[in-house]
Design a protein around this nucleic acid. Structure first.
Lengths: 185, 185
DNA sequence: GTCTATATCAAGATAGAC
DNA sequence: GTCTATCTTGATATAGAC
């Protein structure tokens, strides 16, 4: 199997739990059953790993966008795919990988910071694409308004994952989703 | 002046920008014009500093709760005090200190983690107190619903600060506030 | 209560063998 | 492509003088 890709996938997983700054080459090495030096062979500097991770995030978002655009899902199903299906596989200890990186942004190498901005804008765009269908023949559905709505929904979702983890209440996330959906009526 | 308190205040400030794990005794020492060893005199371990910081957060929340409870503000003014007045003084590089700690929670010493849970629950309670007045004579205003609403609002607000910082758009926060207030109608 | 100096430790990074 | 061994750095932490 492709070790390089495995490393990036694992890093992404650990970022959800501990954050990019807190994961060490040792964590990756141990879980993959190789040594630190092997990780360094694939990613000389941690910055290189950061770039690879954010690049994978971008690809994942492109795939997601393609999926919700191409499939015959109802608008509600698309939204649920974005807000629920994606999040469900996370453990209670995990938050969104994007917000995890966002929290560390001030200590990230510039190259990674720039990629993170790209990721952030792309994710917003994907959600905008989904929401756009909601009010397609409603006068209030101007672009500006939709973008505002998307930003609010994303903010709430990401924040909810942070809260869920700290207070350990798994019922919190669905409750926030329920509330946030009221904004789409 | 009370050096010990100065250290905690500065730490709180730096946590908003860089996060607890990323601030070093050196950052604190330099900005206060003393040496690392002096910081260690007041807080032998970083864990001790973490406890002091979270304790200050608790006190700040108690003060906030007292303020909004005792003053003759309208309900809208109380909410704005919570959602806007408090946040306004932050620079664009800063997020909420509570969510900053929440992001690092899995790498925090247990003692700090516990205090952070306390802080988190207390903040929710303060907002619940404010919102409770909103629908005081509305049938839908049961406790459960209010708590759900408070969690959603807090999540959105905290998430919005993360987004604002990364994409550097200062207009994002007020937009999210505007949207979130629709939930209170 | 603050200083200088130093010990300790964890993590990123590199060199060279296999 | 992965290993062992080592170097380097940055940060926490401690000892002892002032």
């Amino acid at each position: 199997m492709d070790t390089k890709k495995q490393i990036v996938r694992l890093a992404l997983e650990l970022i959800r739990e501990k954050g990019f700054l807190s994961i060490g080459y040792d964590d990756l090495a141990q879980q993959l059953g190789i040594t630190r030096a092997a990780i360094h062979y694939h990613f000389e500097k941690k910055e290189d790993l950061g770039i690879a991770v954010t690049q994978m995030m971008i690809q994942d978002l492109i795939d997601l966008d393609t999926y919700v655009s191409s499939t015959r899902l109802t608008i509600e199903e698309k939204l649920d795919h974005f807000l629920i299906k994606q999040i469900e596989p996370f453990s209670e200890k995990q938050i969104c990988s994007i917000s995890s990186l966002q929290s560390d942004v001030e200590s990230l190498p510039d190259s990674v910071k720039e990629k993170l901005q790209e990721v952030t804008k792309l994710e917003l765009k994907v959600l905008v694409n989904i929401i756009s269908e909601f009010k397609i023949d409603d006068v209030t559905a101007d672009t500006e308004y939709i973008e505002e709505l998307a930003a609010t929904i994303l903010s709430a979702v990401k924040g909810a994952l942070l809260y869920r983890r700290v207070i350990g209440d798994s019922s919190l996330y669905p409750k926030v989703i329920k509330q946030i959906k009221r904004l789409l009526l």
